[in-house]
Amino acid sequence: MLNIFELLFDKNEIFLLVLVRTSGIFVVSPFFSSQNVPNTLKAGFSFILSILLTLSLDIEVEILRTTFAILIIKELMVGLIIGFISYAFFSTFYVTGQIVDMKIGFGMVNVIDPQHRVQVPVMGNFYYILAFLLLLTINGHHAIINGLIDSYKFIPIGKFTFNLDTGFFLIDILSKSFITGFKLSAPVVVTIFLTDLLLGILARTIPQMNVFVVGLPLKILIGLIVIGLSIPIFYSLTTGVFNNTIEEIYNFLNSFVKG
């Protein structure tokens, strides 16, 4: 134990920089930034993980000749971007739920998300919690930690530079999350569209029928049935979203190797 603390004192600057990059992920990443996780646990786990990384990394001392404040900002940016990529793809399920709510008639109903303390759509919260549980089942949070560890192979301390390519990359991540969310909601959207088409035909053929009275509960019922039937394939779809998350994290890291 004493040897560990002696090594940390010898590498105190490196330890602080590693702690900053690790903390950046814990601020944004969907699992680690959850409000349900106590801040003491977040800080303790980030501290322990930083100790392990510091003792296992081989970093050149010459890098530390750069202004320490600039190094802190660079390391924080790396951690925040990795966490942002995972959070952006995880927000796909909120997008899916928002589209589904608008189609089946829950668009005016929101609930409080205890993790982020904001109002979210009903089905969005349902999809998010379900995906959250699946993330833990397939050890997706371990993959995020592995991405943090591998980030030092691609982006050594002090080597990060934010440029236009990085900005365009983050914008592309947002667009992909919205596209994926729309694809996940496609079964419900198509079914409700056909239901609206059927109700329109009935309104023309049977003018006495009040379509607005019949249509709203009918769309809710059909929407919930489609959602229930699509639950079995939700696991494979969610796994695909997680795989895209890890792929884009490593695409971000590889962009610095290519540069």
Rank of each mutant, 00 (worst) to 15 (best):
I72L: 14
I73P: 03
E75M: 12
E75L: 13
L76I: 13
M77S: 15
V78H: 08
V78D: 09
G79K: 04
L80F: 01
L80P: 02
L80Q: 01
I82Y: 01
G83A: 14
G83L: 10
G83V: 07
F84V: 00
F84N: 01
S86R: 02
S86A: 15
Y87R: 14
Y87K: 15
A88K: 13
A88G: 04
A88H: 00
F89T: 05
F89H: 02
F90T: 07
F90Q: 07
F90R: 08
T92G: 10
F93W: 07
F93Y: 15
Y94F: 11
T96K: 09
G97S: 07
G97Y: 05
Q98T: 14
I99Y: 05
I99E: 01
V100I: 15
D101M: 10
M102E: 07
K103L: 11
I104K: 05
I104S: 09
G105H: 04
F106A: 04
F106D: 06
G107L: 09
G107I: 11
M108Q: 09
N110W: 00
N110L: 09
V111M: 03
V111F: 06
I112L: 13
I112G: 03
I112A: 01
I112S: 02
D113S: 13
P114G: 08
P114W: 08
Q115T: 06
H116R: 14
R117A: 11
R117T: 01
R117P: 01
Q119K: 05
Q119H: 02
Q119M: 06
V120L: 07
P121T: 05
V122I: 07
M123I: 15
M123W: 04
M123Y: 09
G124Y: 05
N125C: 01
N125E: 11
Y128L: 06
I129S: 03
L130H: 05
A131P: 06
A131E: 01
F132Q: 05
F132V: 00
L133F: 14
L133C: 09
L134V: 15
L136N: 06
L136I: 12
T137I: 14
T137V: 12
T137R: 06
I138K: 04
I138E: 07
I138S: 04
I138M: 11
I138W: 05
N139R: 14
G140Q: 01
G140A: 12
G140Y: 06
H141D: 07
H141F: 10
H142K: 15
A143H: 10
A143P: 03
N146P: 02
N146R: 15
G147R: 01
L148C: 02
I149F: 09
I149Y: 13
I149W: 11
S151H: 11
Y152I: 03
Y152W: 12
Y152T: 03
Y152R: 14
I155F: 08
F162W: 07
N163T: 12
N163G: 15
L164T: 09
L164H: 01
D165Q: 04
T166M: 13
T166Y: 00
G167S: 13
G167P: 02
F168M: 03
F169A: 10
D172A: 15
D172M: 14
D172E: 15
L174W: 03
